Each structure stands twice: as structure tokens, then as C-alpha cells.
Simulated scan of single mutants.
Amino acid sequence: MVESPFKPNILKGKVALITGGGSGIGFEISTQFGNHGASVAVMGRRRQVLDDAVAVLRSKGIQAIGLEGDVRKQEDAARALETTVKHFGKLDILVNGAAGNFLISPEDLSPNGFRTVMEIDSIGTYTMCHEALKYLKATAGIGPSTGGLILNISATLHYTAAWYQIHVSAAKAAVDSITRSLALEWGTDYNIRVNGIAPGPIGGTPGLRKLVPDEVLAKRREQMPLYRVGERWDIAMAALYLASDAGKYVNGHTMIVDGGLWLSRPRHISKEDVKALSRVVEKKSRLSEHQASMEHQTATDHKVGEIAMLEHFGNLYQEEGPRNVLQLAPQLHTFRLQPMQPNLQEDSLQGSGLQLW
């Protein structure tokens, strides 16, 4: 594990509640917050997972408690927040990390399954924010080290589209909207910053094991800009930045931490083939330009000659009259007679080889 670039006391005196904080990304955030001076409360639905997580945190010297509850239930949210404040005296940071996900095609996804994910991710996030407001307002004084913070864990799935993830894409799009709206309103009225983090594939998490089996992951690595999956530590460092004074002017932003993966597309042609193709295209382009230039020059020369000849014969006509001009007709195939020559009649041209236009 890479050593943290942050000072160990950057969150000293802060109190954080992390939903989904007993495992995966949430547990790493709980650990790093604690390592950097914060007291943490982890919330989840499985008692044993919570107990194990709290035991590990306390073994590291971190002040921690576990709170069993379901973020979809308003009474559970209210109880968890109230217990946190009673135990630690206040609340500075709320991290909404609880989420549900599974792979399924839309035609196989029931409305109830869609609703379940929406309720956990989006409604659960809003419920926790709503119930946390009164506590965050109490610590939201004016100054760089004060003010409440909400961090919503999102995703990048909805930035374009993702196979078999219609439910989560919709839920995370809602989470991002909640982040922006609360950042605007609560940032203005209560000095509460609201930001998000959108992780890419993170190794060592239940989500990655469930959604991207090792066999599939091995094939996808070559499509990843950094040729690797992320670590839970990467997400926790982003959370530390946003929770610390270093991020005190960041509000309403969802930070993408995925190594650029959401921007990537499969490489359908190698670099070597691209170079060879480019040379062929450049050669053809130059030949086409040269040919076009020659044809243009030829057409231009022909037009200039024709104009000069017409001017010449026009002048002769005015000076010598039509009969003298027609003596030179065999030198022409076509003579374009200008409107300024009204006296030259069609019968004057018979047998001359000239055409009257």
C-alpha cells in the first residue's frame, strides 16, 4: 500500500458517518478517515460485517462504532445519525456509500428489481442527506476548517451507456443530480459542501468480483488507459482530499477516479497499421492534389486562350467587318459571338465553320 500523501491529522476532531462503511470502498474510506484523525461511524445492514469492521478499525487506534440500518428506511437513517451524534458529540461528514448492483438485461429486469436499486442508491442517498441536515448545520460555521460535508459515491455508467446496467445508471444519474442540487442550495444557505466520487473498477471489492469476473477482467485490461484496475486506496485518497481543507472550495463536483476508463474505446487497429495506412492515404492524397492541380491548370489555360481569341475576333469584327473576319474561320471550331455584334447574321456564317451562339 502506498503511503498517504496527506498529513496524519488533517481530519483531526472530525466525525464522519459512512454508509456501506463496513466493506469494500466504504471500509477503506472509514479506515483512511480514521488514520487521519477522524472518529467514524459505519452503517450497514449486516451486523457481523459491521462488528468485524469496527474491530479492525479499533485495532488501528481509530474511534469507531457500528450502526445497523437500512438507508431506504427513514427511521433507520434518523436513528443512525442520532446515535452518531450522541456518541461523538457532533457530525461533520456524511459519506453515502451504500449501493446495490447486479448484471441484468432490461428485458429480464423486473420493475421491482429496478425500484430496489433506485431506492438503495438514490432514495437512500437523499434520505440520509435529509436526516443529516440538522446535524451538519450545527457544525457549518464560516471558515476554512468548518462547514459540513456530504460525499456521494457515484459511478460513470450513465455518462454514455453501459450494458446490463440500466438500473444502476439511472440510480447514479439521480445521485449526481442530488449532489449538484444540494451543493447549490445547502452550500448557499448552510455552508455545507456536497460533492461526489465516481470510481472506476476497483480491485478487491465485492462489486468488481460480482460484476467483472477475473476471466473478463483479464481481457479488458488492454482497453484500460492505465492498463490496471484501481485500488480502494485511490478512492479513499480522493475522499480525503474533498473532506480536508485542501478541498474547501470544491462544491457540486463529482470527481471521476477511474484512470480515464470511461473515456476509452476498444482499439480496432494497431499503431503500426495506423502508420502504414497514414502513409498510403498521404500518398494518394498528394497524387490526387497533383492531378487536380494539372487539370485545373489545363482548364484555365484553355479558358484564357478562348477568351483571348474571342476578344481578338471581336476587335477584328469591329475594325474589318464580318466578311474579313470570316476569312479566318477555318482556324476556329467554334466562335462565340458576343451580343455587341448585332449586325452579324446567321446567313453570313454559312460555310464558314463558325457557329453562332
Rank of each mutant, 00 (worst) to 15 (best):
S4W: 09
N324F: 10
G13R: 09
V15Y: 09
G203F: 11
G252D: 05
N35I: 01
G259Y: 00
Q32D: 12
L287Q: 08
K73C: 11
L81P: 13
E306D: 07
L182N: 01
G20A: 00
M1L: 11
H268I: 13
E319D: 07
D347T: 10
G351K: 06
G44Q: 00
S264T: 03
S122A: 15
Q355S: 15
L261H: 07
T300M: 14
K60G: 11
P225I: 14
P342S: 04
T127F: 04
R265V: 12
D347R: 13
L182Y: 01
E319S: 13
Y190C: 10
V54T: 09
S244H: 09
A299W: 08
V194Y: 01
A308T: 00
Y249C: 00
R46E: 05
G24Q: 07
L332A: 10
A98V: 11
D121T: 12
K219N: 05
I202S: 02
G24M: 02
S145P: 00
S352N: 07
D301Y: 01
I178Q: 02
K275N: 02
E75N: 09
E346D: 14
I18R: 04
G24S: 08
Q318R: 13
L57V: 13
L151G: 05
S4T: 12
A243D: 11
V257N: 08
G21D: 00
I197K: 01
S278L: 06
G21A: 03
I197F: 09
G148Y: 00
G207E: 03
E320L: 15
R45L: 04
Q63L: 04
L328D: 09
R221S: 04
Q355A: 12
K137G: 10
A132R: 04
E289K: 12
P225A: 07
W186I: 03
S110F: 14
T156P: 02
G148V: 06
I235S: 05
I120A: 07
S23D: 01
M294W: 04
I192P: 06
L211Y: 03
T300V: 05
Q63C: 06
C129Q: 06
N191P: 05
P8T: 07
T83Y: 02
A138N: 13
L326V: 14
G260Q: 02
E107T: 15
L242C: 12
K283A: 09
Q350G: 05
G21C: 09
T19G: 01
F102E: 13
A292S: 09
K284Q: 08
S181G: 11
N343Q: 12
A238G: 15
R72Q: 14
D234E: 14
I202N: 03
T84W: 07
H87K: 14
G203R: 04
S39R: 14
V85A: 04
E28S: 14
K219W: 02
A243F: 10
L94V: 15
N152L: 00
A329P: 09
Q32C: 05
Q223G: 01
I150V: 03
T188N: 06
F27L: 12
R279H: 12
E131F: 03
G97F: 06
A38S: 14
D176S: 06
A308I: 04
G26E: 00
V194R: 03
E107N: 15
Y135M: 01
R279C: 00
F114H: 11
